[in-house]
Simulated assay, not measured.
Amino acid sequence: MNIWILSSGLLGVLTALVHVFAGQVDPVRPFLKSELADAAKATLLACWHLVSVTLLVSSLMLTYVGWFGLYSFYLPIQLVGGVYILFALVFVVVGWHFFGGKVFVKLPQWILLLPIGLLASYGAMPV
């Protein structure tokens, strides 16, 4: 068992659930009621669910590898950890563009994404 990778996976599963359920209430429903063309709405909704799938599948992989301590998967885990760190960075950069210094409050998604990436990356470091 690798507690660092397992922790990142469990936090990732929680994040995926928050994304699927809470995300439907706050950003998705109002967006679907907007005046955008249906093709744009459908594309962006599909992208939203692509993110849901990515969060869930990668988190389940992290959980599995962490539970069984599968050393042979540590390189892919480092890559997944790096992706989560980049996800957090994207939220900070985009949020900074729109909200300046209020980014950390207006777009708090980085608060969950960054620890997932850091825990996975740390847990998969070569010894």
Results as ranks from 00 to 15, higher is better:
Q109I: 01
S34A: 14
F31M: 12
S121V: 01
S52C: 09
G117H: 00
G81M: 07
V103W: 11
D38N: 11
L36K: 12
L118K: 01
S34H: 12
A40F: 07
L114V: 11
L45M: 11
I111S: 02
G9V: 05
L70T: 15
T43Y: 12
V94L: 14
Y64S: 15
F99R: 12
S34V: 13
G101T: 08
V83L: 13
L10E: 07
L114K: 10
K106A: 07
V93G: 09
F104T: 03
I85V: 15
I111D: 01
Y64N: 12
L114P: 07
V83N: 08
L118W: 05
L17A: 12
P27A: 04
A42G: 10
Y71G: 10
S52F: 06
W4Y: 13
G81P: 03
D26H: 02
L113F: 13
Y64T: 02
I111T: 07
V94A: 13
R29I: 13
E35P: 01
S59T: 12
L70P: 15
F91I: 08
L79I: 14
V92C: 09
F21V: 09
Y71V: 15
W96P: 02
L60S: 06
L60Q: 05
G101L: 11
L14K: 11
V90E: 09
H97Q: 13
V57F: 12
L86T: 14
M125R: 11
L75P: 13
I77K: 05
Y122P: 02
L32W: 09
G101N: 05
L107Q: 13
A120T: 04
S58P: 14
A124I: 03
H49V: 11
Q24Y: 07
S121R: 01
L75K: 11
W96I: 02
V90R: 06
G69I: 03
D38Q: 14
V105R: 14
L86P: 01
F21R: 10
I3G: 01
L79D: 02
P115F: 09
F104V: 01
S7Q: 00
S58N: 08
H97E: 09
W4H: 13
L36Q: 10
V105E: 10
F73H: 09
G100C: 05
V92P: 03
S8E: 05
A124D: 03
S59K: 09
L62C: 15
A39Y: 14
G66W: 04
